[in-house]
Design a binder for these strands. Structure first.
Lengths: 220, 220
DNA sequence: ATATTTGTTTTACAGTCGTACAACAGCGAA
DNA sequence: TTCGCTGTTGTACGACTGTAAAACAAATAT
């Protein structure tokens, strides 16, 4: 019986390989069929190694959720961070980024939904979810405030937070349905729909946000 | 070995008992731990009986998803169906119904998310999801149109559909985060937040929808 | 070159999974 | 009451699960 050849990788590399293999399996097969052997195979590794990096398979899946959310919130925080833009352009970019690749992705939404299904069951999932949600809420609030000030509307913190909650809901909902690709409408309409609705929610004049759409298209 | 006593139930009753036990298990344990034996026990039945009502356990889970979505869309279609109301009140009721019991429910959101996670994997789930989404979209569109007409805004079908998509996104997103109960804000604020945002999306004057809030509270 | 460390593979095991199927029993018909 | 039908139970089985632990080998230090 000849043993399989292997090479030793850095701890971080092996760990993220395992986490990404976990996400890939969960997205393609579902949580129930994402077995330890399947995941190990996708990571190019044998099943026993999992327990060398994680106390249990469940713990690895939890870590994979945290890893995914970390990626997603980092991507969100990067969008609209160009300092030279107007507040309106920055907000429009944050919103529109959710409806373009790589955010608008069937894989991402599948993973997100699968894990959200565990939030009620497992407190660790609830913590990860709450943290990600809170961060995005804060980001939106920070982007909304200067826009309201520039446009001369009421901009007290309580109103900003309320608008952030509503805007986050809008983005989440449109992102989910858009990413699932049900074919009921063209997903390319989503940025315009989202920005138009956001103008309404924030009581901004029409085209305040949507006029930044053309730029987005040219850049990609 | 004495056999367990049992009584024969009607086919429909037994079937829905199994479906509800399936949903209960999936909500409490997650898809992977919702085994045939667990489900059967909750239905007050032995595991072998499952295959007498469904060709396989997977098929039963699919049927449970269809059953859940059927309940939810039926509940949505019942809300705001009183003929004597103004169009504005009817729309407000449809929106607000999502943020009160029994719609606003951690169990429901957990199930919804868990199943949505399978949409990309299994075409049967995709069909069920698309159908439910389409129905709610149509319902919203039908409720939006008379409001726009009454308020004198543009009400062409294309605009109505676009607004329905945005409104559905808003409702979905707020419903999810609200039902998960992360404790970042009081979920009782959601009806007001949703109606206020809807007024903005539809470009209606303030309080067009929110003024129907007090009535809702008194009734319940 | 040799020894040491430890990341990795392999094997083994107890438990659980979905399911096939034979035996049983509740219930209506005769 | 007895029969026949079939909804329901109980059991057995092979496949698969996560995991423990021993055997091994790749990289590093000496």
């Amino acid at each position: 019986m000849t043993r399989r050849a292997y090479s030793r990788l850095s701890q971080d590399r092996r760990r993220t390989d395992l986490l990404e293999a976990t996400l890939s399996c969960v997205a393609d097969l579902g949580l129930d069929r994402a077995g330890a052997r399947q995941i190990a195979e996708r990571a190019g590794v044998s099943a026993g190694l999992i327990r060398h990096y994680f106390p249990s398979k469940d713990e690895m899946v939890r870590a994979a959720y945290a890893y995914l959310m970390g990626q997603m919130t980092a991507a969100a925080e990067d969008s609209g961070a160009g300092d030279e833009q107007s507040p309106e352009a920055a907000l429009a970019e944050v919103i529109a980024a959710n409806f373009a690749s790589p955010s608008l992705s069937g894989v991402k939404v599948s993973l997100w939904a699968t894990f959200v299904g565990r939030v009620r069951v497992d407190p660790a999932y609830a913590d990860i979810h709450r943290e990600g949600y809170r961060e995005f809420l804060d980001l939106l609030e920070a982007r909304i405030h200067p826009v309201l000030v520039a446009q001369g509307g009421p901009a007290d913190p309580s109103r900003c937070k309320q608008l952030a909650i509503a805007l986050n809901g809008l983005i989440d909902g449109l992102w989910i349905e858009g990413s699932l690709g049900h074919g009921l409408y063209d997903a390319r309409r989503l940025p315009a729909i989202a920005l138009g609705a956001a103008e309404g929610i924030l009581r901004l004049p029409d085209t305040t946000l949507t006029r930044h759409l053309a730029l987005e298209d040219e850049r990609s």
